[in-house]
Structure formats: structure tokens, C-alpha cells
Amino acid sequence: MAIANQPTKMEMGIQPQGMAGLPPSLQYLAGLDQIIVKQKLEALEILTGFETRNRYAVLNNQGQQIFFVQEESSLCERCFMPLNRGFQLHVTDNNSQEIMQFRRDFKCCTGCCWCGGGCCDMTIYIESPVGNVIGKCVTGDSKWKPHMRVYDAADNHMFTIWGPCCPCQAICCTDDVEFPITDPTLTTRVGMIAKQWRGCCVDTFTDADQFSLTFPADMTVNCKALLMGALFLVEFYVFEQQKNNNQ
């Protein structure tokens, strides 16, 4: 289904740029310094606790929807192995054209935030266009808090992401949960993934998360796409796990 109200490049103040091999719709990322990712509320999941396929709207910093993300996964895995499930996240533009895909394979073993690594790590592959891997995001062996590394298609270590040791939100803890993005040496901060507090009722009684991703406006579109994939690894690695523990 087509998504309404996608802004044009002129409305966003972005000049078209050539990006060899990448779908033209990804040019919407050029010039942006922030995107918002909102998970859609699912009535069936709210009423029954049944794990449905996740859906997300991707907005620019003016609140205009630019992309839509739909999970494809096995019903059996969602019901009985929700944390281990494999999935494809299909990213479409407002013309319902798939421009990216984030893919994670099923694993019998997955580590928690403190002991993930080795055979139990999680990896999300970022493809654009579909079938062309432009990079991946992999969980690290941190022992005490979430740790992820972002690589490009040539396996060059591009970014490192560390989260807090207690990534929780509740009525008495309403701050955004921040995951700073740094260069591999950890000396320069280049961006931020943050799970935003949406209010007591939404965050306490539903699993509809909202994230922001900030990065330099002049960062390459490839790197912005890689960080979008990293955002969804944070969602599934940290907060999906947290939801299931709460349930």
C-alpha cells in the first residue's frame, strides 16, 4: 500500500545526488541529520499478547513519513522462539517500492546484552537494493552492557555502538535510553540512537517503541543506511528481549 505525504526533495531542501548502485528513493536520506522510527500499535498484540509481525513508520525530522518497514518472519518462530527468530525487514518508499532490506537469520542460541558474542551473537545484514549486501551490524561480547559494531561491505569496521547497562524505561524512569555511535577507536562521537519515552500508558502497557537516529547531515547515504540497520538491531537485540522478559 502506498504511503501518503512523502516529501519531495525540494520540500526537504535536498539536491539530487548520484549514488551508484543504490535506489533513487534513498536520496531522501541525503542532507538529513535525523530520522524517527515509530513502531505501529497492533490491536491483536495489545489484547492477547500474541507476537505479531512488527511494522514501523520512518519519519524525517519534520514528522513527514518517508519510508515504511514491514517484518516478514515465521509464525512458529514468533510464537515459540521470539528472541531467536529470523526475519526480513522490508523497507519500502511511498510508491511501495522496496529499497532496502534488513535480514537476520534464525539462531538456536542468542546471547543477552551482557554475554552475547561468538556463536551466540546476532547479525543484521543491510541490503540495498535487495540482494546487494552493503554492510552488517554485529553484537559484541561486552559482558555487562549492549555493544554492537557496524561494518561495510568490505568488512571494514565503521562504527561502534555502546548502550547503558540498564536500558529500561518505566513510570519512575522516563529518560530516553541512549546508544552513542562512535568511530571504531571510541574517541569521536558521530551520532546517537535513542529509544524515546512516549508516555506512561504507551511505554508501560504496549510494546510500540519509538526511536530517533541522529547523524551528521553530510554523512554518506551508505553509512546512514548502515546506521538504520543498526537501529533495528538495537530494537530486536535489546528491547524485544526486554518485552518478552516482562511478559
Rank of each mutant, 00 (worst) to 15 (best):
K195E: 08
T174V: 07
A153I: 04
V150I: 13
W162G: 09
I161L: 05
G191T: 11
A153H: 08
I181C: 01
R198D: 06
N156Q: 15
P167C: 06
E178H: 11
C165H: 13
V177L: 10
D176T: 08
N156A: 13
Q196F: 03
C168V: 09
M192N: 13
T185R: 06
A153Q: 11
Y151D: 07
Q196V: 14
W162I: 05
G191A: 02
A194G: 10
C168G: 02
T185S: 10
R149W: 12
I161K: 02
C168F: 02
T188Y: 02
A154T: 14
R149T: 12
L186S: 12
R198I: 01
I193C: 12
C165R: 13
W162E: 14
M158H: 00
R198C: 15
V177A: 09
D183Q: 01
Y151S: 05
P180S: 13
T160Y: 06
G199A: 07
C173Y: 13
H157G: 04
F179R: 06
I171T: 13
C166N: 15
G163V: 00
A194E: 05
C201L: 09
K195F: 00
I171R: 09
L186R: 08
C173N: 14
Y151M: 12
W197M: 09
F159G: 05
G199V: 09
D183N: 07
G163F: 00
P180G: 03
I161P: 00
T187N: 02
K195D: 09
T187Q: 10
F179E: 08
F179M: 12
N156E: 14
T185K: 05
G191V: 04
D183S: 11
